[in-house]
Simulated scan of single mutants.
Amino acid sequence: MERNNFTAVVEFILLGFYELPKLQRLLFWIFLFIYLCIFLGNSLLIVITNIEPSLQTSMYFFLANFSFLEICYTSVTIPRMLADLWTQKRTISLLQCAVQACFFYILGVAECLLLAVMAYDRYVAICKPLYYALIMNHKLCVQLVVVSWILGAPILMEQIYQIFSLNYCGSNKINHIFCDGPPLMKLACGDIYKIEISSYSLALLFIIIPFLLTLTSYVKIITTILKLPSNSGRSKAFSTCSSHLMVVGLFYGTGSIMYLRPESSRSAKSDKILSLFYSTVTPMFNPLIYSLRNKDVLAALRKLLPKFLRS
Score class of each variant (00 low, 15 high):
Leu134Trp: 13
Gln88Phe: 04
Ile71Asp: 06
Lys128Phe: 12
Tyr290Met: 13
Glu11Ile: 07
Ile71Pro: 05
Tyr278Leu: 10
Phe33Glu: 00
Met185Phe: 03
Phe66Lys: 01
Ile126Thr: 06
Arg80Gly: 10
Val145Trp: 13
Ala101Thr: 08
Phe17Met: 15
Asp191Ile: 02
Thr49His: 06
Leu260Gly: 02
Tyr168Asn: 06
His176Gln: 07
Val9Thr: 13
Ile30Thr: 08
Leu45Pro: 01
Lys269Asp: 07
Glu263Val: 11
Leu212Gly: 07
Leu205Asp: 11
Thr224His: 13
Ser67Leu: 03
Ile126Arg: 01
Trp149Arg: 12
Cys141Ile: 05
Asp296Ala: 13
Tyr123Lys: 08
Thr49Asp: 08
Trp149Gln: 11
Arg234Phe: 12
Gly233Asn: 14
Leu45Ala: 02
Val248Ile: 15
Glu11Leu: 04
Cys189Ile: 04
Glu52Cys: 11
Ser199Gly: 12
Met81Trp: 05
Leu276Glu: 00
Lys227Ile: 06
Leu205Cys: 15
Ile13Val: 13
Ile195Asp: 02
Ser199Lys: 05
Leu274Trp: 11
Ile207Ala: 09
Asn286Asp: 12
Leu63Asn: 00
Gln143Trp: 00
Arg266Gly: 07
Thr7Asp: 08
Gly249Ile: 07
Leu114Phe: 07
Cys102Gly: 04
Val248Arg: 04
Ala299Ser: 05
Ile289Asp: 07
Met81Phe: 05
Pro306Met: 12
Asp121Gln: 14
Ser275His: 09
Leu202His: 14
Pro21Asp: 06
Phe39Thr: 14
Val145Cys: 12
Leu292Tyr: 09
His138Glu: 13
Thr223Arg: 12
Ile222Gln: 08
Cys72Ile: 12
Leu298Glu: 08
Thr74Tyr: 03
Phe33Cys: 07
Ile221Leu: 10
Cys102Ile: 01
Tyr105Arg: 11
Ser265Tyr: 09
Ser235Tyr: 10
Gln162Lys: 13
Val76Lys: 02
Glu111Tyr: 07
Arg3Trp: 09
Ser201His: 08
Leu69Gln: 02
Lys22Gln: 14
Thr224Arg: 15
Phe206Arg: 06
Ala119Asn: 07
Val142Ser: 09
Val10Lys: 14
Cys189Tyr: 06
Leu55Gln: 04
Phe31Gln: 08
Val147Leu: 14
Met118Ser: 09
Lys22Leu: 14
Trp149Ser: 10
Ile225His: 07
Leu305Trp: 11
Leu15Trp: 09
Met81Pro: 01
Asp191Arg: 00
Arg310Ala: 13
Arg310Asn: 11
Ser67Ile: 00
Met81Asp: 00
Val219Gly: 11
Ala110Glu: 08
Glu196Pro: 00
Ile208Gln: 01
Met1Asn: 10
Asn5Thr: 14
Lys272Gln: 14
Leu44His: 00
Leu184Cys: 05
Arg25Ser: 12
Lys139Cys: 01
Ser148Pro: 01
Val147Cys: 08
Gly249Glu: 04
Phe61Gln: 06
Gly233Ile: 07
Ala300Thr: 04
Arg90Leu: 06
Val145Asp: 04
Leu301Thr: 04
Val76His: 04
Thr254Ile: 02
Ile225Ser: 09
Ile192Ala: 13
Tyr131Asn: 14
Leu212Pro: 03
Glu52Ile: 02
Leu228Pro: 03
Tyr120Pro: 01
Met258Val: 02
Arg80Glu: 08
Tyr168Ala: 06
